[in-house]
Design a protein around this nucleic acid. Sequence first.
DNA 1: GCAGATACAACAATCGATTGCAATAGCCTT
DNA 2: AAGGCTATTGCAATCGATTGTTGTATCTGC
Lengths: 340, 340
Amino acid sequence: MNDGTAPPRRIRNIAELARLAGVSAGTVSRALANSSLVNTETRETIQALARLHGFRPNQMAKRLRVKETKVIGIVVPLGHERRQHLSDPFFMAILGHLADALTENGYDIMLSRVIPDAEDWLERIVDSGMLDGVLLIGQSNQFEAIERVAAWYRPMVVWGSHRPGQVHCTVGVDNRVGGRLAGECLIGAGRRRLAFLGDTAAPELSERYLGLCDAASAAGLAPPIKLETHLASDIMAEEIAGHIERIGAEVDGIAAASDLIAMHAVRALADRGLAVPGQISVTGFDDLPLAEQTIPRLTTISQNITAGARAMVDVLFERIAGTAAASVEMAPTLIRRDTA
Amino acid sequence: MNDGTAPPRRIRNIAELARLAGVSAGTVSRALANSSLVNTETRETIQALARLHGFRPNQMAKRLRVKETKVIGIVVPLGHERRQHLSDPFFMAILGHLADALTENGYDIMLSRVIPDAEDWLERIVDSGMLDGVLLIGQSNQFEAIERVAAWYRPMVVWGSHRPGQVHCTVGVDNRVGGRLAGECLIGAGRRRLAFLGDTAAPELSERYLGLCDAASAAGLAPPIKLETHLASDIMAEEIAGHIERIGAEVDGIAAASDLIAMHAVRALADRGLAVPGQISVTGFDDLPLAEQTIPRLTTISQNITAGARAMVDVLFERIAGTAAASVEMAPTLIRRDTA
DNA sequence: GCAGATACAACAATCGATTGCAATAGCCTT
DNA sequence: AAGGCTATTGCAATCGATTGTTGTATCTGC
């Protein structure tokens, strides 16, 4: 009655609309699905009626019936990190790309940040009946749990490291090579006393450390110091500051486990009057868009997040379709900028 | 037969488990829900059986039946931005906090990044039957669409500006005051030729610009120049560089619409040999964790994202419960650091 | 004018759980 | 011993759609 458009009375289900249209529920369902089984005329009548009342079929019911939810779970396990780091820029970057790719293909996204305390956390997610597939961002320290589930659940792809013989399907860069690249860069810049800044509980990060060791030993240097750092950004800052304070002049080259850590390190070094790259060189890891905008610009190892996200989605779809698509391992590259 | 634990034969639904346990489906349902209606002994038998077979009831079916999905939609409308900016650090920061608060309360999160081309994009989300409530991050240029839906859909809370008389419920800072604070800071630093760097299509950002104008006119200055900038980070960089190139010496104070924009601006200024804050002052907006880690540290307007996210969730729950909770407007504060 | 094909729509089963109600058995009370 | 409780469990309806099967006009060709 308001502006020509008729009563905004809300319709709650197909049955009601069917009654209104004088047909059966089945016919309405087919009409809304644009099935050619229903007469063009009635089809249009019904669609018009639906539009008029702003009716949209309940997705929950539909999905229950057709056993396809069109929802993909994106899960971030925070095993070695009680504190949230959903706001970690790397995660955000990859999430953005995943969201793009999934949305394009008509899938919705269910986001879970999980603190794996319940032991069967992954089973619970995978088995909820709400998801057609799962993308795991990072292995954290949950390698076992992931393997266990991967043994019977196919549509799952994990961002992280690939260990020979593992069951679950991963997409990621060769972290060991990445670590080596960082080391070679530092050594090439004349640095001899190296340190690794990060948390080695996660396999990805531990591989990077090993790569750094490879480079050091190839150059005949002592194994790099390991400086543990949590990933939650608030404590990270002071932890890093503490490390820098402590190791000060003992170290002249820092390979950070991520760009974010590298940024904090550069900041902390500046606070203590240590010039980067004048006195100390620093490398990051990830090559986030941000890395190019800092002062000084970060020298870093590129993960090609865009391609990685795309690969994860492609592989996932293949697995949903039934193909047993294999893991993807990409080559990291060194991006040389200002800090090393 | 593998290690003492019995056959891993998978059970697909409650009926199957019921047959196995020799009881009816209803009893199994109650047993798994730990209802006191079922005998303690049988209850435990059933639970043990479920555990043994790794059975977990289908959530889709449950949720259809009880008409409560325990899922909240977090939606980012990209009306004035075709390109994705899910990776925008501000969005990521608030998403992290929202995820915490929702997960704590037993809710799952459905993430949608929407390009509102379909006209009824929001109706479609809200009406899908998949969500108990919706959190909208930013109004973009979709004020009308949001108002239209808010007229009949209660459990929705929007991060953004509150215009007098609007229907939909918002949580956010007073952006106009924030803009004024930025302006006053720049003027207090002796700057007289101001510019606003950002996209004024979104109401939040436009308010910030107006606040900046307030400050300028109060100080008897000419209205600040408006420099339009897209929010997608890849084009943002060159756009900002272009602006800086063009306006160079004409401007001595820049109020950026966000911390990210401010960072890019500082970077672009450095590239052109303009010292910050020596020759030009810059302010950001948001006070992301990052703002403290850049070199030089960003002077910025704080949004208190933590409190904001918490407030959004609180208000949303009240609205889900039926209370008509009102909008929340927080006061922004100036965080004085190095850039202005 | 009739067999057979065609087009359309109604009927009813199904997806997998939840839950009000009815039924049964065992126990207590008087 | 009969009536009344209580503790358990089974039965069946329900949530809201989808879809295979069946039924009935209408139409075609001969």
